[in-house]
Design a protein around this nucleic acid. Structure first.
Length: 507
RNA sequence: UCCCCGAUAGCUCAAUCGGUAGAGCGAGCGGCUGUUAACCGCUAGGUCGUAGGUUCAAAUCCUACUCGGGGAGCCA
């Protein structure tokens, strides 16, 4: 009831285009205030967008005018005024203010319009969510999750929620979180797959979507200990069918983001032209072909060229810094000097980042050149392959020894399994891992034993091969990695509201 | 777990050869009727991450620890 009243009472900023020339009331928070004597420019943030509100002296009481002038960043207020078009306002509309009501004060809001470090922002994550970049990424994440559900719901899949407390591991038990469950040690799920296979034998097509947990002590820009994953599983499907499903699915998600979040993509500077190329079919490589590429002269040349362009990029930055320093010596106004100093600082950061790349490039080249068939592809190997392609790349048929026991052995080549990874382009790396599942009872038991597990603890999973086994398979897509790729985010931690990392669980 | 880098004002950073700290932003006060990280003037704000060591003298050099960043391994 209350909600209904509020929605009637207040206009949303993203709906102002329908109210030009009329008086509306906005409810939100003060994003920025620029007082200028007898006029004030307030930027109001209401969760749907930003709007400039202009208060002229005399239009409201002198006392209120002064009170608004001294409001801190993020103070909450409602503003009433006449809507008009104004290209200089973010969003294109402006409010000529007729009255203001202060709801809540805000003193010394920690996140200022200036730059901040990662550590500081993470310690203020609960407030940082209000910032524009975080807001845009959150909006895009929402569309991604919504379109994931839409895609599977509209293609005959049934949602099945798999348990979080589990007694068996999907792959390699050492990386799971342990939980005390009435005195028994259980693990937090790192995949719903094994359960989902049972569901696929009931519904034909099923998917699960939820949080998943990995206790790996990874400290990289691509890892979280708690992340969201969607996993479809299909009965009567082969590897080709899975690849088609995967490319149609990913293309649909990207298409929906382009359709619904254009302004946010522009705002955060995402590579829209690159996203528009994401359409089926994607590239397909076997693992063996990928290894050939890694060890080829083409890859060596590619990396050598990359190194050269890093170096010339760095030289250009060094020149720019020198030019700015010269300019600074001639600058007269203090604010000019400060601005130039800030630019120099930014360029120095870019140069530092390039130094890391220049340092890593030969190591990665070395790893790639010496790659031996049989090893799993490393992060840098995936990056190289994905950088060498414009569209996403499927890599299929990995060595059996490097992969999980449940993957189906290729009947034409005993050394490989019918699996695939999907590498996002431009160096983002793996966003999907999937496989056809071993559907032969005896071969699966053999693989369980080969990996050193006890077949008894997989009895219900093995049952699926006893009672009407069928060829089947599926995959898992990491939501945060997908958000990072689509938004062009450097780090996965800004792709979820409250990231969980090795040493970061406080907020 | 291993390798590299870092920690100075609320925030982002500076401090030459070892000589006990300085800018901007933010905050406070004042000025400005079309601003866009506005601008101009003034004010306050520091046990230089912690603990030792070297030295006449340490933010600066050495050792250990804590915290953070990047990468490797592993993965979505």
């Amino acid at each position: 009831m209350v909600k209904k009243m509020l929605e009637k009472q207040f206009t949303k900023i993203d709906n102002l285009k329908n109210h030009i020339g009329t008086e509306v009331t906005l409810a939100g928070w003060l994003y920025r205030n620029r007082p200028s004597g007898k006029v004030q420019f307030l930027i109001l943030r209401d969760g749907s967008g930003l709007c400039q509100c202009v208060i002229e002296s005399g239009k409201i009481s002198e006392a209120l005018f002064e009170a608004v002038k001294s409001l801190g960043q993020e103070a909450s207020l409602t503003i009433t005024g006449i809507v008009r078009e104004e290209p200089r306002s973010p969003g294109g509309h402006e409010l000529a203010v007729t009255s203001v009501k202060i709801i809540g004060e805000s003193k010394d809001y920690p996140i200022t319009p200036k730059e901040h470090g990662v550590d500081f922002l993470m310690k203020n994550r609960h407030l940082h969510l209000r910032s524009q970049l975080e807001w845009c990424i959150g909006k895009i994440r929402h569309t991604i999750i919504n379109s994931v559900r839409t895609f599977f719901n509209d293609n005959g899949f049934t949602l099945v929620d798999t348990p979080i407390f589990t007694t068996i591991a999907g792959e390699g038990e050492q990386t799971l979180f342990e939980v005390d469950y009435f005195g028994r040690t259980l693990h937090l799920a790192q995949t719903g797959q094994l359960y989902l296979e049972s569901a696929a034998m009931s519904y034909g097509k099923a998917y699960c979507f939820g949080p998943t947990f990995r206790a790996e002590k990874s400290k990289t820009r691509r890892h979280l200990t708690e992340f969201w994953m969607v996993e479809p599983e299909v009965a009567y499907i082969d590897l080709h069918g899975l690849l088609e499903l995967g490319e149609n699915f990913v293309s649909f998600v990207v298409e929906q983001v382009l359709k619904n979040n254009r302004t946010q993509l522009e705002e955060i500077g995402a590579d829209i032209a690159a996203l528009e190329k994401i359409k089926p079919p994607f590239n397909r490589l076997t693992y063996t072909e990928a290894v050939d590429i890694l060890t080829s002269k083409a890859a060596a040349d590619f990396l050598a060229n990359q190194l050269e362009s890093f170096k010339s990029e760095k030289a250009a930055i060094i020149n720019k810094i020198a030019a700015l320093e010269a300019e600074n010596a001639n600058a007269k106004k203090q604010w000019q000097i400060n601005k130039i100093a800030a630019d120099i600082n930014e360029l120095k950061n870019q140069a530092d980042e390039l130094d890391v790349k220049i340092e890593n490039n030969p190591k990665h080249a070395q790893l790639a050149a010496n790659f031996k068939w049989g090893k799993d592809l490393g992060g840098s190997d995936e990056t190289i392959i994905s950088l060498m392609h414009e569209k996403p790349v499927f890599v299929t048929h990995y060595p059996k020894a490097a992969k999980a026991f449940y993957m189906k052995t290729d009947r034409t080549n005993d050394n490989v399994v019918e699996n695939f990874d999907l590498l996002a382009p431009q160096g983002f790396g793996e966003i999907i891992g999937g496989s056809v599942r071993e559907d032969d009872y005896d071969m699966l038991v053999h693989r369980v034993k080969e990996e050193g597990y006890a077949p008894e603890s997989y009895s219900w999973y093995l049952d699926l091969r006893k009672y009407g086994t069928v060829p089947h398979g599926g995959f898992g897509l990491g939501i945060e990695r997908t958000v990072a790729w689509i938004t062009g985010s450097k780090h996965i931690r800004q792709c979820i509201a409250f990231p969980r990392m090795m040493d970061k669980v406080e907020i």
